[in-house]
Simulated scan of single mutants.
Amino acid sequence: MTSGNHQAELASAYLFHLAKERRLSPLTCESYARDIRALLNLAQETPLDRLQIHHVRRFAAQLHGEGFSGRSLARMLSAWRGFYRYLTRDHGYASNPCDGIRAPKSPKTLPHTLSPDEAAKLLEFPASDDLMALRDKAMFELCYSSGLRLGELAGLKPEDLSLDDGTARVIGKGGKTRIVPVGSKAAQALREWMKQRQTLAKPGETGLFMSRYGKNISRRSIDQRLKIQALRQGVSANIHPHVLRHSFASHLLQSSGDLRAVQEMLGHASISTTQVYTHLDFQHLSKIYDATHPRARKKEKS
């Protein structure tokens, strides 16, 4: 067996371990697979057990020179580090050449959010005469109402809804289940959609949201439909479902100030992930301050 074939088999075994033993989502496994393929391409003929820390530093520098951001490199190094931890534990590798290597820092970027007025403008479209519009309204209202990830939205089933209680059961990252609130506008849109869902659903299809062909709707289709709707409503063209999730978190934090509650609703494992929204909230307050405080406003030119 050639070195390249053996290394590819090790990578496949690790990805199987991530999917079946650690039960990571298909999307997360795809990301790991891309990062590990990059490592194998960079290593070329050098066996994985011969790679040293200076090799990995050179790989990171090469990717950085090709335009990879610090954040992308940090994710990639994390994937490589995990791969080598698996190799040392299960395949007798002596050391982890990725330990201690840090990616270059990237400038912090805050997530893009809609203002409350923009969110309302996006979601206020008629849907009574169009089955697809009825479905889209229910999807987008729920995404904004409950701060769902795209995969969570696409994976919902009718039995996950408890509209009388105003809640939904969501399976998030790592297979973790959480209960999220469903607002009144989202609940109303979902009730209207549920009356029509069976007219589309093919036998055996279990998803909450159907494509026009009666199949469970894909993530890609949800993303495309949202972009189309944003253009129709005259909202920014660069809208995707995660913008609705960011907007949910930002608007909730502005109203409540309860970071722990926002963390719980978003399904974040760490509060540090949620804290990015405090920066958005501060930006919001800074704009109000600059516009209204008499000592902050710029003097008009005479």
Rank of each mutant, 00 (worst) to 15 (best):
S247F: 01
D35A: 08
D290L: 14
G183K: 11
Y289M: 08
N5T: 10
R23L: 13
D117C: 03
L42N: 06
L87E: 04
T274A: 00
G147L: 05
R50F: 05
M1N: 13
I239V: 15
L134T: 14
T278F: 03
R37C: 09
Q188P: 02
S247A: 02
F16P: 02
T177K: 10
W193Q: 00
D129C: 04
R23Y: 08
E21N: 11
A74F: 05
L153Q: 00
F248R: 04
T206W: 02
G174D: 10
T273A: 15
L266P: 04
G65L: 06
L252R: 03
Y277V: 02
L77W: 03
S106F: 08
L39C: 02
Q233M: 11
L122F: 02
Q254G: 14
E118S: 07
A138C: 10
A189I: 09
S146L: 07
S250C: 11
K137E: 02
L123M: 11
H91C: 11
G166L: 09
D130K: 04
D164Q: 12
G4K: 06
A168F: 02
P97G: 12
I36H: 01
L150Y: 03
A61L: 15
M132S: 14
K173C: 12
M139Y: 05
G172S: 07
S3Q: 13
A230P: 01
R81Q: 15
R297C: 07
H17P: 00
T292Q: 14
V56G: 02
S218N: 13
A13N: 13
C143M: 15
H55S: 07
A201T: 09
R23F: 10
R232V: 00
A230W: 02
V170G: 00
R191W: 00
L24A: 03
V170K: 05
G147H: 06
L134R: 15
L24M: 08
A237F: 06
S115L: 12
R50I: 04
L18N: 09
Q62G: 10
S247E: 08
G155I: 03
D290S: 13
S3V: 14
L200H: 02
A11E: 08
G100S: 10
R22G: 09
A120C: 08
N96Y: 00
F282T: 15
K176P: 06
S255H: 14
T28C: 10
L148V: 07
S25I: 07
L63Q: 15
H268P: 00
M139G: 03
R58P: 03
E152H: 04
T88G: 08
L10P: 04
A103R: 10
A201Q: 08
S302M: 06
T113A: 13
S250W: 01
E66Q: 15
L285T: 01
I101M: 12
R22D: 10
S25F: 06
E152R: 01
L259R: 07
L200R: 11
S72M: 12
L114Y: 05
D117R: 00
S146T: 05
A61N: 13
V262C: 08
G172C: 08
Q198L: 14
P158G: 13
K202A: 14
T278M: 00
E45S: 15
Q263E: 01
A133F: 11
W80N: 01
S211T: 15
D164H: 07
V56C: 11
I171A: 05
S31I: 04
